[in-house]
Amino acid sequence: MYDFAYHKPGSIADAVKILTDDPEARPISGGQTLLPALKHRLAHPTALVDLSGIAELRGIQRDGDRLVIGAMTKHYEIQTSDVVKTAIPALAKMAGNLGDTQVRNRGTMGGSLSNNDPAADYPAAAMALNATFRTDRRSIPADEFFQGMFATALEPGELLVAIEFPIPTKAGYAKMRNPASRYVMAGVFVAKLADGSVRVAVNGAGPGVFRQEEMEAALAKSWSADAIAGIRQDPDGLNGDIHGSAEYRAHLVGVMAKRALAEAG
C-alpha cells in the first residue's frame, strides 16, 4: 500500500472542504472495499478522509413513511435494527447476508452504495425501493444515482449523507452467490411501493444494477410468480465470465425473481 495522509474531520463541512481542496484525497468509511483496493495499489490517494468521526452520518430513523439510514451506519447495525426489521424486513435480511460478520462489523451502507460494485447487494434494494440519496448538497433519486460499474452521480468531493427508503407494502430479495467468493452472480429485489407501483431491480448479473421493466409491468397487474413465469431476461449485455455465462445469469434472474417474490409474500 502506498502511504497517504490521514484526516479525521468532525463535521460534514470539514470533510467536504478537505476533499474539495485536494482532488486526490478519498473518503474512507468502513474501508472493507477501499483498503483491499489500496493494498493492490489500484488507487493512490494522497490522503484518506476518515468519516467515522462525523456523528450526523450515522443512525437509523423512521420518518413517517420513510426509513432514513445514515451513510456511515454499519451493516451489523442495519441487520439488527428493530426499526429496519419492522419497516423493511427484506433490507435487514440483506444486511445480514452480505460479506461476513467481520465485514458487517466495519462496512457501511453508504460506503457500499457510493462504491456501486456491480455485485454489491444494497444497490438492488435502493433501486427497487426507489430510494433517495441525500448528499451534502442535494438529493439524488435512485434512477439517477447508479451510473454503471463503480460509477455514481456523486461529484468529486460530494458526500453521501443518508439514504431515504420509502417504506414498501411488500419487498423481497433473493440472490445466487458464487460458491467460492460468495459474491452475487445474480440477485433480484422486488418491491411493491405504497402507491401501488412495482419496481424490480437486478444486481450482480450486469455491469451495474438495472430495472427489469417487463417484470415490473407484469407484477403491477398481478403480484405473483405466475405473472413473470413467461418472462425471459435478455442475456445481451450481461456479465459472462469463468463463473457463468451471460445466458446462465439471465436464467438466474428469472429464478431469483420468483424466489424474491416468495420472500416478499
Binding site: 479525521k8 483498503l35 483491499p36 467515522s52 467481520q102 465485514v103 462489523n105 466495519r106
Partner: peptide, 12 residues
C-alpha cells in the same frame, strides 16, 4: 466487536 485487523488502519 470482531474485525479483520488486516483490513483496518492502525489510525482507525
Amino acid at each position: 466487536e470482531s474485525v479483520k485487523s488486516c483490513t483496518m488502519l492502525a489510525v482507525q
